[in-house]
């Protein structure tokens, strides 16, 4: 029962929630967010070279959205991961751990040096996220098509309590091939979950090729509109647009919002750019060197930075 909170305890925590400020702990400006995106991408390449296993292209493409979410928009306390006043986010695309973990580490949930033990037995960073192992991970994931349902449940429960929390479901385009994603989309539209915001990493790539070739998904915006959602379409590398969309989502009442963020797999590394072969493999050391050179650093420099912090 150690994880179970008594009713009294919950009431007490709810009282705390109302008195603490609900704001992002960093609230970085656009130029600083751009720098943070670059740092996240350096983290991703470095940890993957060290791990010799993992997904590269998707996490690179999602770095700008993660930067905006973690360092401008979302409300949380990295020193108190279960702070009841927090917003919640669910990486339905569990394989995005390189960006998920680097964002958590940069945000202060755990030391940056932990990233160098990604996927290793003596680390706490599983290949796909495990909430019992890693602070800041709300729920374990890795089997696709479940995150939107979890987010729906968390949003529903938060609304029952009158909690001001916003709930983010971070989805891949490919996982819209899972039927359960649409069960959740239907329920969220039906129940008018306006505290729920889904963000689709719309890079048109999955393991076997381009999404449109594997299983035609377009017009995705029309599909969500038909399921009674507010739909915002943006360039997922334009941080100003990302912040604007998140704010617009916050103000939309009576409907859940989905942000269809057009991203490019591997962005901005030239030899990974829009290449589905980079979905599920790590860079070899020489590829890592080339990528990090394009990102303005080197493996020696950046791994040293991670290990020092």
């Amino acid at each position: 029962m150690e994880r179970h909170l008594s009713v009294d305890r919950q009431s007490m925590l709810a009282a705390e929630t109302t008195t603490m400020t609900r704001t992002n702990p960093y609230r970085l400006a656009i130029d600083q967010l751009t720098i943070k995106s670059l740092e996240l991408r350096r983290d991703i390449i470095t940890m993957l070279v060290e791990a010799k296993s993992g997904h590269t292209g998707g996490p690179m493409g999602f770095a700008d959205i993660a930067s905006a979410l973690f360092f401008h928009e979302m409300v949380y306390d990295p020193k108190s991961p279960k702070w009841p006043g927090r917003d919640m986010w669910f990486f339905s695309m569990g394989h995005m751990t390189p960006i998920h973990y680097s964002a958590l580490a940069e945000a202060g949930y755990f030391p940056l040096k932990d990233l160098m033990k990604f996927r290793k037995l003596d680390g706490h960073l599983q290949g796909h996220p495990s909430c019992l192992d890693t602070p800041g991970v709300e729920v374990s994931s890795g089997s696709l098509g479940q995150g939107l349902s979890i987010a729906f449940g968390a949003a529903y429960g938060s609304r029952m309590d009158g909690h001001p929390r916003r709930v983010y479901a971070l989805l891949s385009d490919g996982e819209h091939e899972e039927g359960s994603t649409w069960e959740a989309a239907m329920a969220a539209g039906h129940y008018r979950m306006d505290n729920l915001c889904a963000i689709v990493d719309y890079n048109n790539i999955q393991i076997d090729g381009h999404v449109e070739d594997i299983m035609g998904l377009a017009p995705l915006g029309d599909k969500y509109r038909a399921f009674r959602w507010n739909v915002i379409e943006i360039d997922g590398h334009d941080i100003t647009a990302i912040i604007g969309a998140l704010e617009q989502a916050r103000h939309c009442k009576g409907r859940p919002t989905v942000i269809l963020a057009r991203t490019v797999m591997g962005f901005p590394v030239s030899f990974m750019f829009d290449n589905f072969e980079w979905h599920g493999k790590p860079p070899k050391p020489e590829e890592g060197d080339r990528a990090l050179a394009e990102l303005g650093t080197s493996y020696a420099e950046w791994s040293a930075r991670l290990l020092e912090n």
């Binding site: 349902s149 449940g153 949003a155």
Partner: peptide
């Protein structure tokens, strides 16, 4: 107010229940 009809969608119901448990239900 504490009863949620999920329709004929058991997978969504199961994972939505998971989400509810994450916020203390």
């Amino acid at each position: 107010d504490r009863f949620i009809e999920m329709g004929v969608a058991e997978q969504n119901m199961m994972t939505a229940a998971a989400g509810l448990s994450l916020v203390g239900k």
